[in-house]
Every structure is written in C-alpha cells, then in structure tokens.
Write a protein that binds this DNA or RNA. Structure first.
Lengths: 333, 333
DNA sequence: CCGCTTTGCGCAATCGTTTGCACAAGCAGG
DNA sequence: CCTGCTTGTGCAAACGATTGCGCAAAGCGG
C-alpha cells in the first residue's frame, strides 16, 4: 500500500505549489508554465499518482457504471448477451454491475433499487418472467435511464431492443409445414413475457397460411420451471393425436422435454422432433439435436441495448426512447 | 426525473433548519428533538429523498463495489461461481462489477486496472490461462485487496480458494482402475494453471499406486482452444495403443474430444469413455455422458472467496491472507 | 437565584478534485 | 510613463453528506 492515499495535496505540498496548479499541470492546462508542468508530471509519475475516482465521480455526479439485471447468469443465452454488453460499454469506459433476478419479481425490484443506491448511471434490464408489476421500473426511471433487452417492456417511455419473434416463429412454421409436418405443438413461455404473444402469433399465422386448423390442446404456456415443462410435455404426449414436432420457447425447455420423450420410449427426430429458440452451443453436441433453431443473436441484442443506453446517458437532453428490432435467423441442422 | 437532484440542502431550506439537523434527523440522532425529527423524516419521505451515494462513497472512501475478473462468462462453470459470489456479496450490501479476460493476459491486466480506476473496494480473480506475468496483480494489490478463486495464484501475499485437484484426480483414477481400466489418458490444461500440475500429480499417484506404468504419450497439455483439443485427441487416437478412458480438464474439452471420437467411428462409453472435471448441467442431457465427473462446487468456491474478500475489505488491519481448499467430489453416472 | 446538566440545533471543517476569478509580474505599444 | 495584454499562479467555492464542537435555552437541585 505504498501510495494508498496519495492526493494532489501531497504533491502540491512537496513541490511548494497550490493544489489547483497541480490539477491544471496534470491536465496540460495552457496557463501553467512548462517548467512547473514538467515538475508536477514528473513527481506524479514517480509517486504513481492516480486520481481518486470516487472524488471525481462525486464531482461529476457520474460513476461510469451501468447496472445489468437479467434472469440467470447461468443461462448461456444471457451470458452471451452480457458479452455483447460488456464490449460496447468497455469501448466507452463504462463497466457493468451485474445482478440476477432469478425470474423473481421481488429480486428484480430489489436489484434495481440496489443499483440505484450504488449510483449506476443507467440500467439494462431483461425482465424476469414473474414480473407483472412495473412500478419498480417507473420509480427507477426517474433517477436513471433504463433500456430493456430481449425480455422487454414495450412502452413509449422505455427503450427496448428485441428480436422479431413473430417472424421467427412464422419462418419456423413455414419450414416445418414445408417439410410435411402438420401436427405441430407450441411450448411457449409465460404470459408475462411480450415474446410469448408474438411467438403465438407467428405460430398461428403459419398454420393459417396453410389452412391447418389451430388446436388449443397443442398450445401450452410454461412458467419456465422444469416441473412445469415435464407436466406440459406429458400432457402433449398424452393427447390422442400427439404432436410430431414441438416448437419450444428455448433450448432448455426442449432438453427437458426431450428427456421425457426418451423416457417414454420415443426416439427424438424419428417419433418426435423439436425446433427451438436460442441456439445454444451445446446443442451441437447432442446426438439428436433440435432439427432447427432460431438464432436470436443475444450478443447483438445486448450490444445494441448498451448503445442506446450510452446515448441516453451521454446526451440525456436530446435522447428519445426508441425500439430496435434485431432480425432472428432460422438455422436448419 | 421529478427528484433527480434532491439533496439535504433543499430539505433543510424548505424546513428552515440546517443541513446538519436534516442529516442527524434522518439518522435518528438522539440530540435532535422529536418534533424536528418527525418533520424532517416526513418531508424526506414525501419527496422520496435518497442520499447521494456518490457523495457517501467519496466521504467514506468506499464504493461497496467488488470487481470480478474471470476467463469467460459463457462458461457455465464461471457463471455458477459468479452466482455464489453474488449471493455472498449481496448479503453484505456489495455489488459486483464483472469483466472477462477471455484467457488473455492483456485483457486481464487492463480489466484489473480499469476496476481500480472505477474505484472498487476489492477484486476477485480467476486467472486467465495465458497469464504468465503477475506484475498486474502486484500493482493492484497496493491499492485494493485481491482474492483468487479456482484458477489461483499461490503466494503468501494473496488469498486463494481452490479445489483439491490432486485428490480429485487421484479419486477418479482409483475409480477407473477399480473398474479395470489401465489405458487412461490425461487431457490436462495449460502449464500456466496451478491445477494442471496438481491434476497430473493425482493422475500419476493413481497409476503408481496400482503399478501401472506412466506413459508420456498418454499425457497431453492443452491450451483450451478447440483446435488444440482436436489436435490432441487425434494424437491420442492415433497411438498404437489408444486410451480406453480419457481424464479431461473439463467438460468442454471432453465434448469436443467426444465429437472427434464419434467422427472417427468410435462409440462413446463402449470404445472410449471420458471422465471430466466440472460437472456441467447439460452433460446430463447427453445420450452418452462422461462416465464420471468431478464436481468442484464452483458456487462454493466463489462464495468462500467472496467471504475472504469481505473480511479483507472490512478489517484490513487484522486480515491475514490465507487459502481455503474445497474438497471436490467424484460423481459416478 | 446561582451554577450545573441536559436538550436542541447550527457552524464549519472535511473528503479530493475542478474551475472561475483575481492578482501580480512582465512586457509591448503608444 | 501609463495603459492594456499576456503569462503564471493561487484563492476559494463547489459537489453532498457527516460530525466534532460550540452555543443558547431550558430544567433542576441546593
């Protein structure tokens, strides 16, 4: 701890000049004589002077920290998004403070409050699936700008970056129907997520286009717990006319569902197939992976959201909340 | 932004009292009259007063932020560790600022410098595999305490939390040899990681105990890139006497290696089997998973490291750097 | 009624840095 | 020689909250 509390004051005293002279000398202020400037910079370097960031944060009322609240770090989808966020923020000198909501409203709300207490300059949020109440966002947005990504809240007050899920679902349906499938089930997300509705729309649009009747028993909303996934896939398999393909909310759902199918003696990609949203890397290691998957480019979503937030933080007067839509891509295996 | 810059000064002016009275009233200081106290607290609540955290950080020279530097967020192993860290830190009111080193020395070094500039109170590090130079740690530790976890630097100056890899490797060997295997290869990590040496020791100890000769051609050090993994597994399979089991540095290595084995017509768990370190959740979805895996409890490692760091930050005068060893557990599938 | 303690509150310094302004010295032009 | 400009430096306020100290009023015992 050789220089734990080295301040300008000490440098000033050492050199017999004032603190303001030291400050200006270090900033190469033109009004400081070159002799003094050199002297100050030399000593500062020798003593490894580093400005006290907390004092500067205080003075500028800015911390160069951004909060990120997302459901689970352990879901690769979100850690990829974080990587995109980190990269964009880093290039502008910002860091990210990360918190997990675990899909829980209380935790999400507490996280946002805590971030504001910690003095972040802005917040990126991918909403918890159990968030039906939005007051915590409204309270927070009085203090710092908020930008949503992936699991967004669509509202003119907020910026949001998300994938075109309706189109992605529709594309997937066209592909499946084109391959001759008609018994297609949808294992969708919870109603609290915007994307659930959009996915349903794409699914129905696809069926309608090819005059395939929509069967309510093929459409399941899940709450993203493993238990519920097991319950719903069993319901589907118990139908008189079980589906031949399942369009799944994401890979994790599909994996658990596939497990049940196997336990019930079905062979994946012969008796039943899956199409998923999210394209996780480890699916490529499966012997029988989903036949297709929607790549949603989470890193891109994160990066774009971080870009909007940067704009909102750096030019708050001119910033207008807006939405960015990233086009997903159907990947066929 | 109704109350973006509401300070004690405004409350004081509004009520015709001094700022110090407001400050004390909000802290329930006994010397403030109950009438004044009520008045101040009521108004503060009405106006949604929140203390300016940057001012408090500055005054206390403390930010309640902790930096975490790790190789990849997208490796589930590390995101689980982060979850353990988050939980421990959260309970004491700290948040974590996360940065990825991508196993690169330059990035790691820059991350640590950036964290210090951002004013974190302490740093948790899981070292990059390409870090051979330690000067960035030495520089940083003059400013804030550093605690290593999982990929640690063993040195009396630093605290470290890590798994007993030697024993874990030895246990795995005993299990394999007990099952009748003798042709056991080791796909180890890079030399820069402490655990590589320890894993090798456990491997050799196991062979020696059962008088199985150590074959240098069965021992490979990897640099953790996919290309290198492919190269090394091919070298192993090309041997006159290819191994029947591979002890792999972690699941990601094993997955890539298994892929190559399959491409070469081998059937996993019949012609060749794998034992891995790290026990990632998705391996349970594989049709032919590794026959055993070493659970290293990354959340526990992270939590313990965070605990040490908390101690180092909160009682710096009495804190002595030390090491904590977490016992891994062999899980047999 | 005096001297003491208690109660209630404000003043001012402090943390480290930045910055508008003032001031003095030097110098050039008229 | 005076005016006005440039150059180099320091003073002091500011950011928001905390806190030691001081002061005045009130209360109380003798």
């Amino acid at each position: 701890m050789q220089n734990a509390n080295l301040t300008m004051k000490k440098i000033a005293k050492e050199l017999g000049v004032s603190v303001s002279t030291v400050s200006r000398a270090l900033q190469n202020h033109p009004r400081i004589g070159s002799l003094t400037r050199e002297k100050v910079q030399k000593l500062a370097k020798e003593l490894h002077y580093q400005p006290n960031s907390r004092a500067i944060n205080f003075k500028n009322n800015k911390s160069f920290n951004v909060g990120v609240v997302l459901p689970y770090l352990t879901e690769q989808y979100f850690s990829i998004a974080l990587t995109g966020i980190e990269q964009t923020l880093m290039s502008k000198g910002y860091s990210m403070v990360v918190m997990q909501s675990m899909n829980d409203y209380e935790r999400e709300s507490a996280a946002i409050e805590s971030l504001i207490k910690h003095g972040v300059d802005g917040i990126l949020v991918s909403m918890a699936s159990e968030t039906y109440n939005k007051t915590h966002f409204n309270n927070a947005t009085h203090k710092v700008p908020i930008v949503f990504f992936d699991r967004v809240l669509k509202h003119p007050r907020y910026s949001a970056v998300y994938g075109n899920i309706t189109k992605a679902a529709f594309d997937a349906m066209e592909y499946l129907i084109g391959k001759g499938f008609t018994e297609i089930a949808l294992m969708n997300g919870p109603n609290s997520l915007q994307s659930t509705e959009e996915r349903l729309k794409g699914y129905i649009d696809g069926l309608k286009k090819y005059n395939i009747p929509v069967s309510a028993s093929y459409i399941k909303n899940l709450n993203l717990t493993k238990e519920d996934t097991i319950l719903k896939i069993n319901e589907l398999l118990d139908l008189e006319n079980p589906p031949k393909v399942v369009l799944a909310f994401h890979d994790y759902i599909a994996l658990d569902a596939m497990q049940i199918c196997k336990e019930r003696g079905l062979q994946i990609n012969r008796d039943i197939s899956f199409v998923t949203f999210s394209n996780l890397s480890f699916c490529s290691y499966l012997d029988n992976p989903p036949i297709a998957t929607v790549e949603q480019f989470p890193a891109e979503l994160g990066a774009q959201a971080a870009g909007l937030l940067l704009e909102a933080m750096e030019t708050p007067d001119t910033y207008q909340p807006r939405e960015i839509v990233v086009e997903p891509k159907l990947i066929i295996r």
